[in-house]
């Protein structure tokens, strides 16, 4: 064969077909999806993240949390996501309306975080866990995020934010570990992760 243009036409059409089929048509089908009103509460769903949580979202992105934590709950009967308590229902497209980028994830070295705000609502727990995961989850392979904390001399008064560390994690006497704004933002983001409202297309428990 020696006819380049025809070859090129085939090359063009094959990719064009999948580009249209896998990106353009989905964009037309559900790229314009809108928020909905939850009947029980009368609030719009989903809500955009804002303030500290939206800053925390940027930290989640920058530090690549996605490489170990997914944010998608598979439906009942496919995997054990719901049985593990990772969600109260399967995730659907509407849950991600404001997410840029979407943190769907493809790896679960750590647990799914779709609903972590409901599953673990304690700020202290999250701060200790970020400072050193071994405090709360012995044997975890999650790295410590000490760069989100500051070790400093205790001043006239101990900081109210300081982590309460005991045993092998205790700080040297006279010092305290204080979370930076970044640590607080990240925790605010984690606490904002809740997908617990029943939707028309995704009733609870399915």
């Amino acid at each position: 064969m020696k006819y380049g243009p025809l070859l090129f036409l085939g090359i063009f059409l094959t990719l064009a077909s999948s580009w249209v089929g896998l990106t353009v048509i989905p964009q037309m089908q559900f790229g314009g999806l809108q928020t909905t009103k939850i009947e029980e509460t009368g609030r719009d769903y989903p809500l955009n993240t804002w303030g500290a949580a939206s800053k925390g979202r940027e930290l989640y992105r920058a530090n690549g949390c996605i490489y170990c934590h997914s944010q998608q709950v598979r439906p009942q009967g496919f995997g054990a996501d719901i049985e593990r308590g990772w969600g109260t229902r399967r995730s659907v497209s509407r849950d991600y309306l404001y997410d840029k980028p979407v943190f769907l994830g493809t790896m679960r070295t750590g647990p799914d975080l779709t609903n972590i705000g409901q599953r673990q609502p304690s700020v202290d727990w999250h701060l200790s866990h970020l400072y050193d995961p071994q405090i709360t989850s012995k044997g975890s392979t999650m790295p410590p995020y000490r760069f989100l904390f500051e070790q400093r001399k205790i001043g006239a008064k101990p900081s109210p934010d300081a982590l309460k560390l005991t045993g092998e994690f205790a700080t040297p006497p006279g010092y305290e570990i204080v979370p930076t704004e970044n640590a607080k933002d990240l925790v605010a983001y984690l606490l904002s992760l809740r997908a617990d409202a029943a939707l028309l297309e995704a009733p609870l428990g399915k």
């Binding site: 999948s18 580009w19 896998l22 990106t23 989905p26 964009q27 559900f30 790229g31 314009g32 999806l33 497209s93 509407r94 991600y96 309306l97 404001y98 997410d99 840029k100 980028p101 979407v102 769907l104």
Partner: peptide, 18 residues
């Protein structure tokens, strides 16, 4: 479609894996 002018929601997932 993902970085410069991201599409909405899970369409990003489709584009990403395409």
């Amino acid at each position: 479609m993902l970085v410069i002018d991201p599409v909405r929601g899970t369409v990003q997932g489709a584009v990403n894996w395409w």
